[in-house]
């Protein structure tokens, strides 16, 4: 985080809208010992019109760790992920109830500006979606619209640091002005991650970030996730059980809109408590 202090990204200016103060609950089942809670959800329900997609989801997401959401298609894991940066706000007829706090502050408070919230909670999607601009501009876009760099020199620093953090710098430093869409799939995904970290978020949400990538590109992203978790709270939705097992420290299993079980990844994959988790991860349904 401190890498960005020279670029004008002042954290204290970002969340003043998050006015509500509520104590962060740290005692929920499945919390990792010793890790501070970054995101805390209590009884979160999500409705798409009349259809309820999530039922009473309560979970604590630890800071500076990777939390994996697993579960069969339609189980609600992506829906819950999209609650965290209020992406569901953009869907007509979508209603979210319950409380969802980031660092103890209500993410759905009246004074919270979702656009500001999303600078703190970045998102990486299934398919790499670089803007049809140069590699440089892809990374510089966010910091520019948020006024995070005062000069071209500042911006150069942000772009270089972000690309380095995303493990892409060495591969693109000589062609920063070429289109981002000209990169390979794995490089594009790392470019998107560079774009995400450029605005200095706290939390990075990843929705199946490797499902369109080959094994080598996947391994690079997984290595990157492992490096990034030292500085960010990462939440990854994945259909690959092996990937969840490889990259995460905490795993949450969703089924039919309910959070069935959550706990340290090692326990979930060796000795799950709930028979539904057991059946899912061992390939007995789903």
């Amino acid at each position: 985080m401190e890498d960005f202090s020279a670029t004008g990204a002042d954290r204290s200016q970002v969340p003043p809208a998050l006015a509500m103060t509520a104590p962060t609950v740290k005692t929920a089942a499945g919390s990792i010992a010793g890790a501070a809670t970054k995101v805390s959800a209590r009884d979160v329900n999500v409705f798409y019109g009349d259809k309820q997609a999530l039922f009473d989801v309560s979970i604590d997401i630890p800071d500076r760790a990777v939390t994996a959401f697993i579960g069969p298609s339609g189980c609600g894991k992506t829906t819950f992920l999209r609650c965290i940066n209020r992406m569901n706000d953009t869907i007509d007829g979508c209603k979210v109830t319950g409380t969802l706090q980031i660092e103890g502050k209500d993410a759905y408070g009246k004074n919270v500006d979702p656009v500001v919230l999303r600078t703190r909670v970045g998102m990486v999607f299934q398919k790499p979606n670089p803007f049809p601009k140069s590699i440089y501009e892809n990374v510089a876009y966010g910091p520019r619209i948020h006024g995070m760099a005062k000069s071209k020199a500042d911006m150069d620093v942000v772009v270089e640091k972000s690309l380095k953090r995303a493990g892409l710098w060495e591969e693109v430093k000589d062609r920063l002005l070429q289109p981002g869409t000209g990169l390979s799939g794995g490089q594009q995904q790392r470019l998107v991650i560079a774009r995400t970290v450029a605005v200095n978020p706290d939390i990075i949400l990843m929705d199946e970030p490797c499902s369109a990538l080959d094994p080598i590109a996947t391994a690079k992203i997984e290595e990157l996730i492992d490096e990034l978790r030292g500085n960010y709270t990462i939440i990854i939705v994945t259909h690959s059980m092996a990937q969840a097992a490889r990259v995460s420290q905490k795993t949450a299993f969703f089924h039919m809109g309910k959070l069935v079980e959550t706990g340290p990844t090692e326990e979930i994959f060796t000795n799950p408590r709930d028979s539904r988790t057991q059946d899912y991860i061992t390939g007995r349904f789903g």
Binding site: M241, A245, F269, T270, P272, T277, Q278, I281, T282
Partner: peptide, 9 residues
């Protein structure tokens, strides 16, 4: 097969 949970055991 990459056995998990009870299968792993």
């Amino acid at each position: 097969r990459q056995p998990m949970a009870s299968d792993l055991r």
